[in-house]
Design a binder for these strands. Structure first.
Lengths: 191, 191, 191, 191
DNA sequence: AATGAATGAGGGTTCATTCAT
DNA sequence: GATGAATGAACCCTCATTCAT
């Protein structure tokens, strides 16, 4: 009981600190202090800092995938399903700025780099939902005839940048703008 | 008298190492070793690691701006000028993967974060060409009526992601794909 | 749990080395080596070299004050009380040459300089016993009518120089000479 | 011609900087910069930092001795000659706070320590005038019968401390106070 | 399971000194 | 004589990880 609690507490605290201060700006001792555990305790649950960081990422990733799947219409017009998905992810990131910051940190660190490399080799695609959607869209000839990975970048990238702008206070991602931008993304790939 | 030579060599080597290993993965001693100078020599040309990193970024930025400006048609249909610009930046980044990696590192480090903040406050916009183009496009009502920063994210973000995919080997950004993707970006924002 | 032991050991060793070699002549690593601890261990007990140096001084100061207070006659002829005090401090310094050397180092370092400045501003007088004695003596008109700080310098300075001479082997501060010199100090200030 | 000028300039500047910032607070490059010479130039005139520091001290020492000798009455009552000498040195130090600070730095550094040791062994006494005066005074039985070195400390030490207090702003050493304190010093040693 | 004192390799930076020009 | 770019040993400090309790 306490075990789970402690592990969870460590992860929560670590996410917060790492997202805000960067991986190199947070010593293990800082995490331990804020989580009210001893430094050694962290090593009972995680083999090391690397594992903690990696596991933290996997958890967020899992959460995002779950969020995307939840209530996703497997039928209906492609455009609507696309807008549903992109809107969903946008809202999730806007509502979870810490997690967004964390993902960015991770992706732009050696961890993320090597992860991408591993996935390239293993063909493991975590963004299965999007990919499945795109595959279907390609088969239906409703989107442009370009590599699926390009479709992905064309639509996901803007969303990520927009969230960053939103968090930094450059724009306010309200429902109206979410609608407009996700539609723009669709315009980018639709045939 | 070898000032220029040594300074240049240090910057070249630093760019390479930092781009590949991340800012925290490269000790000053490593840069010195690869540049065939003593550690202290670096400090003759740069006040510290921070300054080296920052200066390296400013240099690349300057280069990109110059590249964009060079031969840019100030007249003609908006779409063509947009495609010219996006194509140009795409080719530059594809041709300079190291510089691309470096910019990414920088932007996602505390340096980049604070730089963005500074620029937000000071309204200094380094991507002036793009912004000027967008402002003109907005005035001409040829693009969607959304915040200019959103227009920017909608078009720049995909390009960056595509370059990353290209460097990682997911796609090959040949002329054909460059054309297709930049056109897609235009579709995203055109009215 | 060896907290106290290690901290004490570090302080003892540091006092020794710093007194003999000067603050700049003793790297933290030297202290660590002689104290049989790792460098990092010192930083568990002291925030840095500065704090170690300062704390070391405060400890000696405290000890001296305690020594002076101990058994000090609050009544009786001024001259006798003066001789008691000066004799006491002389004996302490002769018996603790390392601490004497350390105090000298400290007083003549930036630490000591700024400390003096702070105390000047804050009117915090650590040599309270002496000062109290002088104030009483001034009120009783048994000493010359010159600034109290001058009285202080006239009596303390010779003692310090004498101890230094003693440590260097120029003279031997035995009981006879202690008596003679402290009496001479009294002669200097008595009306 | 220029040689002498340069050497002098270096020494002047070094004195100033070293007195104010301490031996470890002044890199050779700083001295060179303020003296408007290249770093290497300093090494043309001085074997190294150590020699520069030592030579600087010897120069001041020589100057003080000269000042003391100048106009010193070799005849007359002992007390008057003593007051003349102590007053002279007091005024010199008050008028040359930088040199005073430098001497203090030097005396409390490893340089000074080893110098004192050397002189102890070699019996070289630089303060010849004072010593000669004391020897005469001892022979005349006008001062107490204590080791000559103790007489020296009893009279020189207070002066030094007073000058320090003056420089730090604790007291103002005007002519009146100079008279009072030097007389007090005489009271300390007179029989 | 939990602790946290202890470790020590490794990092950024400084600066006295040298030497080719 | 004069220069100042170049050197690299040495310093202070951090922090991931371990292990005795």
């Amino acid at each position: 009981m306490q075990c789970l609690d402690k592990r969870t507490e460590i992860m929560t605290v670590a996410m917060e600190l790492l997202a805000e201060n960067g991986f190199h700006g947070v010593p293990m001792s800082m995490i331990a202090a804020k989580a009210n555990v001893a430094v050694g305790t962290i090593y009972l649950y995680f083999a090391g800092k690397d594992e903690l960081i990696t596991e933290l990422f996997q958890e967020v990733e899992k959460e995002i995938v779950a969020t995307l799947r939840e209530g996703f219409p497997t039928e209906g017009p492609m455009r609507e399903r696309f807008l549903y998905l992109t809107g969903k992810i946008l809202r999730f990131l806007v509502d979870n700025p810490l997690k967004f910051r964390y993902i960015e940190q991770f992706m732009n660190s050696p961890y993320g780099i090597s992860m991408r490399r591993d996935r390239l080799l293993g063909k493991t695609v975590p963004n299965g939902i999007f990919m499945a959607l795109f595959e279907e869209a390609i088969a239906d000839h409703v989107v442009k005839d370009i590599p699926i990975i390009a479709l992905f970048s064309l639509t996901i990238a803007p969303l990520i940048f927009l969230v960053r702008d939103h968090i930094l206070g450059f724009v306010t991602l309200d429902e109206a703008l979410i609608r407009q931008t996700t539609e723009a993304c669709w315009d980018a790939i639709k045939r």
